[in-house]
Every structure is written in C-alpha cells, then in structure tokens.
C-alpha cells in the first residue's frame, strides 16, 4: 500500500461572482459533507479563522462547512481598479456578496454563521433576506457598535496598519486561549491588505440601520442564535444581550473565557458552544 498524503481535509477553490456590477474572484475553503454551513470571518481577517471547526472530524461528518475569504481579504483578490480606490465596505455590498456566493456555490438551505461584521450581516440577512437560509448563527454580533478607536489609525503611509490593527484587536482576545492560537488570530490582521481593516470597520462602526428594526426578524421558521465572549470589548455581552432582547425567539449564549474571535482564539472552549448553536438550527 502506497503512502497517502498527510493533507488536512480542508480544500480551497476559487469562484468568480458579480456584485454591484463588478467581478470578484473569491477564494473559498470547504470541508465535510451534509448540511451546508457558510461561515464568514471578522473584519481585517480571513477564512483561516474557521480552521479548527473545518478540521473537526465529528462536525464535518454531517456538516459541509464553506468558508469564503471576502473580496479584498485573504486569497480573494480586490476588484479591477483597486489601486486607485478607497476600500469602504458597505452593508449592501456585503449582503449581495453573501447572496451571490450562496447562488454560485449552489448551496441549498445553508446555515449562515458569521463573526463580528459577519455576525452583523447575520442580523441583516435574518431581517431582510432570510429566504435562502435555514437559520443564522450570529457570533459577537450586535445591532450597532460605534468605534472606540479612530479607524484612520489603520491606514497610514507612515505606519504598518496590519501591525497596529493586530495590536488593537489583541484587546479583544481573552487571556485563557492557547498562546499559539491567540497569535495565529493576530497574524491574520498583521497580513491584512492596506486599508482593508479600516474599510471593513467603516461599515461596522457607522451603519446603524438595524437600530430599532430587530423586532422585525421572524425566528419562527429561521432560528437565530447569538453568541458572545465575556472578554469581547468591541461587542460586549451587554451589547449582545441588548440585541437578543429585541428579537422575539432569538437565543443567546455567553461564553466564558473567550473574546471577539472565538473559533480562532480558543477552539476547544468555543467548540461545545458551536455544537449547541448548530443544534439550535434544527
């Protein structure tokens, strides 16, 4: 018997989608089989945040996890003409990107899981575009978070935005996580393209369009589960509870010893909470 390659089960492929008339080549990682779960990363990072879930043999036995790098992030390219463009993500572009990916990847009845800005979009989709989805897992998610920092710090000609961004977001990482995973989490921010973290934060810290509208989310057929770490200083447990309290039928899990990047910074502590979240999706 010949030796087998020691690959992890995660595979990566590319797909091209059109969003608001522009073409984007998007990198997508995938692992497992069964119920599709499309997983979105935080601002300033990429799909590697989901690496532990996607390498979890028990979870991938009956779930097919699909984790894209948003355009401009990770291995996804920015659009043609990016070199003269100021990247400023909007809710509309994000939502259309998700919907076009679901269509392009021919996903049937996927669960949506997103963290931070991806969690905010979970709420937007649950309110405005629930049709394609089975349910929503909104991690470190709230209706609105004004910035407690100056987002312009992270895109300057005289300093490395990625290193500053990583040092800032370390404030949102709990000390209990394994040291290696806490630093892996920061590495993605260090690698982020120039201006990308700032451009993500632009929509995350300025778009308050969900405020006062969360009561319109119907969870009777599309469950919505919100998860938050106790060490998250950006979306605090109070922020997540305020959000959950406005959505009839929404459920909330507060995770001890975890910050803003649960699946990446402390996979062992996050896992049982995520198993519970998947179970709530029916």
């Amino acid at each position: 018997m010949s030796a087998q390659p020691a690959y992890e089960p995660i595979i990566g492929r590319y797909v091209t989608i059109e969003v608001q008339g522009r073409s984007y080549r998007v990198y997508v990682e995938e692992a497992g089989q069964g119920q599709p779960v499309i997983c979105f990363h935080t601002a300033g990072a990429d799909s590697r945040q989901w690496r532990h879930i996607m390498n979890d043999a028990e979870l991938t036995a009956n779930h097919r996890f699909i984790a894209p790098d948003m355009p401009w992030h990770g291995k996804s390219l920015p659009p043609e003409g990016f070199e003269e463009e100021e990247y400023l993500l909007t809710t509309e572009v994000y939502v259309e990107t998700v919907l076009k990916l679901v269509e392009a990847l021919a996903l049937e009845n996927p669960i949506y899981a997103g963290c931070s800005m991806g969690g905010r979009i979970a709420l937007q989709l649950a309110l405005n575009n629930p049709e394609p989805f089975k349910g929503f897992i909104a991690i470190e998610a709230s209706d609105f978070q004004p910035a407690w920092y100056d987002i312009d710090w992270f895109h300057r000609p005289d300093a490395h935005g990625g290193e500053m961004g990583a040092a800032l977001v370390s404030a949102n990482i709990a000390p209990q996580g394994p040291k290696a995973e806490r630093w892996n989490t920061q590495w993605m921010f260090m690698q982020s393209g120039p201006g990308v973290f700032r451009g993500d934060l632009n929509f995350y810290t300025k778009d308050d369009s969900l405020v006062g509208k969360l009561g319109g989310i119907d969870t009777s057929e599309k469950p919505l589960h919100i998860m938050v770490g106790t060490y998250d200083m950006t979306c605090t447990p109070e922020d997540a509870k305020r959000t959950a309290d406005q959505i009839p039928g929404a459920t909330l899990a507060v995770m001890d010893g975890i910050g803003h990047f649960p699946m990446s910074e402390n996979p062992a502590t996050f896992r049982p909470h995520f198993v519970e979240a998947l179970a709530k999706m029916g």
Binding site: A171, A174, Q176
Partner: peptide, 11 residues
C-alpha cells in the same frame, strides 16, 4: 489571569 475589561490597557 485578568478578569474581563481589565485584560488590556484600553479596558
């Protein structure tokens, strides 16, 4: 092991 909000100077 500092408690939440005291684990970082921005806290």
């Amino acid at each position: 092991v500092p408690e939440p909000s005291f684990h970082d100077i921005f806290g």
